[in-house]
Lab assay of single mutants.
Amino acid sequence: LTVHVGNVTYHFDNPEQAEEWAKRMAKKYQGQIHVKDGQFRIE
């Protein structure tokens, strides 16, 4: 699973971990989480 934050990409084996990280990053950067094809993108 991949989480994109700006132009930085993080890889996770565990979906719960990826989702948790995406939520934390979205809160930190006050962005929206977009989920597409098993990838999380924070914008």
Rank of each mutant, 00 (worst) to 15 (best):
L1S: 15
L1F: 15
T2V: 10
T2N: 06
V3Y: 02
V3C: 06
H4W: 13
H4N: 07
V5G: 00
V5K: 01
V5C: 15
V5Q: 01
G6S: 05
N7D: 08
N7E: 08
V8C: 14
V8K: 13
T9F: 06
T9V: 14
T9G: 03
Y10G: 00
Y10R: 05
H11A: 07
H11D: 05
F12M: 00
F12A: 00
F12T: 00
D13A: 07
N14K: 12
N14E: 10
N14Y: 08
P15C: 15
P15E: 08
P15Y: 15
P15L: 14
E16Q: 11
E16P: 03
E16R: 12
E16H: 14
E16M: 12
Q17L: 12
Q17Y: 10
Q17C: 14
Q17G: 06
A18N: 00
A18S: 01
A18W: 04
A18Q: 04
E19N: 06
E20F: 06
E20P: 00
W21R: 00
W21Q: 01
W21G: 00
W21A: 04
A22G: 02
A22K: 03
K23C: 13
K23H: 11
K23E: 11
R24D: 08
R24H: 12
M25I: 10
A26Y: 05
A26V: 06
K27L: 13
K27I: 13
K27C: 09
K28M: 06
K28Y: 12
K28S: 03
K28D: 06
K28A: 05
Y29G: 03
Y29L: 12
Y29I: 07
Y29A: 02
Q30W: 06
Q30H: 15
G31T: 10
G31A: 13
Q32E: 10
I33Q: 03
I33G: 02
I33P: 03
I33D: 04
I33E: 02
I33K: 01
H34M: 11
H34S: 14
H34R: 08
H34W: 07
V35N: 06
K36H: 11
K36R: 07
K36L: 13
D37W: 01
D37F: 01
D37S: 01
D37P: 00
G38L: 04
Q39N: 10
Q39E: 14
F40E: 05
F40M: 08
F40G: 03
F40R: 00
I42M: 01
I42P: 05
I42E: 05
I42Y: 05
I42W: 06
E43N: 03
E43H: 06
E43Q: 06
E43L: 07
